[in-house]
Design a protein around this nucleic acid. Structure first.
Lengths: 170, 170
DNA sequence: AACGATAGACAAGTGGCTTGACTAAATGGT
DNA sequence: ACCATTTAGTCAAGCCACTTGTCTATCGTT
């Protein structure tokens, strides 16, 4: 069906057209809410982390921490986790090293690779981020109740493809 | 409480510590899901729009379309909507003009300003995006049911601050 | 009429990413 | 055991969307 036909058909079916418009508005609302939720989370956590004194980091660094804190991480692993090139990850890790958040020790079984680990400062930063995240979720639970927050999580888990926690590329 | 004390306290309360860890994991899971949901939406819509032949646009352009399609938009309005400088918005709009998606006509009451409007091609692109969004949401509804999707929207609306639909800045 | 404020565009600079090129070490086939 | 290929990581240069800085034309106010 071409656009002209669609428009004329809509004119002939005003009720259906109105319903479609309402559905479209609902879709846009949900999409907007999801994007806002994501930015609210990232901004909130990042703001709290900065306020806690770790003000030389960007959100992307936090995403790298998620992988590094899990242990057994190399630069390549971080690159894959973040969805960037190895070069970008290498720069990022180098920066984190210079700023005292991670260490690069020789890999036990591969002399080419380096095993990454968080320093005490890196762990402190991670704890600050976790705390901020918990605070935010506590706020949500205070409004919705723990049950609906859990339902939110469960529902999203059913429709959102699982993947690594990577920064937005838009 | 210093970190050392906290750690020792956690060792003394293994049950509480385990519960906290579980809660922390849940928080991270929900945060991950929300970010994934946002990227899934953006990538999905952008992919569909590109596949529909509008392959010279980035997601940011789509966010601009949202404001411009609402009508009565100037470059300044778009800048505020996107959360970028007027210069950046100016470049963006110029590009959209060159590519045939928007027109810049003289503003009826302010000779400094220019009134933005979508061209037929701009509208076609917007419709393609709306269709992609509807398809995605239909997929969600097929899994969760319309009721739970509506609940998702309602719950998020209660905890997420309302704001313009702007691209992620991380 | 004259003033500061505003809309928009031109120009140059910036920063985080990319592609390209390279070294050193691991892997695999013969 | 050897050599070719692959892989981990880094150095270097380029790219591009954004920024800050500057300017003109026009608006609103007094």
């Amino acid at each position: 069906m071409r656009d002209g036909e669609m428009q004329r058909a809509a004119e002939r079916r005003p009720r259906a057209a109105a319903a479609n418009q309402a559905a479209q508005a609902d879709n846009l609302a949900l999409a907007t809410l999801l994007l806002s939720a994501a930015t609210t989370l990232v901004d909130g956590i990042h703001g709290a982390v900065m306020a806690a004194g770790f003000d030389d980091l960007r959100p992307t660094h936090g995403f790298a921490f998620v992988r590094i804190s899990r242990g057994d991480a190399t630069v390549g692993d971080v690159a894959e986790h973040l969805g960037v090139t190895k070069q970008a990850a290498s720069q990022l890790v180098d920066e984190l090293d210079r700023k005292g958040y991670v260490t690069r020790r020789p890999h036990p079984t591969d002399a080419r690779a380096r095993l990454l680990a968080l320093t005490p400062r890196g762990w402190a930063c991670t704890r600050a981020a976790d705390r901020a995240m918990a605070d935010l979720m506590e706020g949500w639970a205070a409004v919705l109740g723990g049950k609906r927050v859990a339902a939110l999580r469960a529902d999203l888990a059913r429709v959102v493809p699982v993947g690594p926690l990577r920064p937005a590329a838009w």
